[in-house]
Design a protein around this nucleic acid. Structure first.
Lengths: 197, 197
DNA sequence: CTCGAATCTTGTCGTTGACAAGTTCGGTTT
DNA sequence: AAACCGAACTTGTCAACGACAAGATTCGAG
């Protein structure tokens, strides 16, 4: 008795009319391509070809190109929030450890990170994106020691964020390797923080 | 006796076959457009239309799109070097002051800054770009107090660069205004440095 | 079983980047 | 002054893309 064929059990070459999870396939292909060749090299038709669907299929999941980028950015914010939330750390090292995780996230998910901070590609009013942004914003704020003696706690937070963000950005644009060589960037980041003025 | 008409004295509507300084006109239009709508909104044909020339004219000055972006990035590096070199500062505040100028440059020339750090858009092997990059690299290194007692001088430099770069990037992507409101970002940056761990 | 909605298809239009080949101009040589 | 050469700019063309419209297929709720 032949097993009923779900989309998942079909051989790749005999594609079903319905893909199964086209949205995810497109997102994954886009992320891989962005990491390799940058956002400028992305074309919806190319992604459709790679997924084995027609050139207009992506529009049904993302409406248009900015919809695709917006979805990636929102996913990036959720991934970042998950990375930071992962495990608790001693309160004294909270800011440093959050920076380390921020850097790790950026290097582990360069495509997401790149898209997240290119507002020109995004639909800034997208509700899903706004929710995801709010989630990470909340989390970054929570890293501040609550009754901190620092005169301006917000300045500290912004300083830490700037440092981590700048380091991550410079890493991804290839401007740091000449300083740190083959070392683990996250370790290098700890040194950086220690050496910061 | 009618004055000989150079391209500069012609009325705009009776365009000469030769533009006069098409290269500069294209660069200026591109920079303005990038600052307004981002690099993704740039099209060589649109720039040609705005300059009043045919759709293939830009190729003669920049070869292709990446050539245009590469020229903008190189110009950005030269502008940055000029901003930093402008005037001498007390050696004790050199690193801080360099950071302030870095931030000021990024906010004054957002389009150049954006292009400079998007390697996917550039011809990394372009000799003019490489020369301009080397010039700023040299200058950033020169900001380090020479006989500094700090164990790792390079870490200090990278820390300062990361802080300034991150702050500038976050400003340009609209993630800082909620912290600093209407204040001058350069002033805010001084506070940030003071509050950094 | 029926029917509506979600998913995917084919078809089309205007725009773009890139290339090829021809035209006009400016300056330099003769 | 005439001839010439290279630079600057032109028109023409092609494949690829984004976006939209309209039709086909499938899924699932009732």
């Amino acid at each position: 008795m032949p097993q009923a064929r779900t989309p998942q059990t079909r051989a790749p070459e005999e594609r079903a009319y319905h893909h199964g999870d086209l949205r995810r396939a497109l997102l994954d292909a886009a992320v891989a391509l962005i990491a390799e060749r940058g956002t400028a090299a992305i074309s919806l038709r190319d992604l459709a070809r790679r997924a084995g669907v027609s050139h207009a299929a992506p529009a049904h999941h993302f409406k248009d190109k900015s919809g695709l980028f917006t979805a990636i950015a929102a996913e990036g914010h959720r991934l970042l929030a998950a990375s930071i939330e992962a495990e608790a750390v001693p309160a004294s090292k909270e800011l440093l450890e959050m920076g380390v995780r921020y850097v790790r996230f950026a290097l582990a998910h360069p495509a997401h990170f790149e898209v997240m901070f290119q507002p020109g590609l995004l639909r800034r009013d997208d509700p899903d994106l706004r929710a995801a942004q709010a989630q990470t914003g909340e989390l970054l704020r929570s890293g501040l020691p609550l009754g901190t003696p620092v005169p301006d706690a917000e300045s500290s937070a912004l300083a830490a964020w700037s440092l981590a963000h700048g380091f991550a950005t410079l890493c991804l644009s290839g401007n740091v390797s000449r300083f740190i060589g083959e070392r683990d960037p996250a370790d290098a980041f700890r040194d950086i923080v220690r050496a910061s003025p």
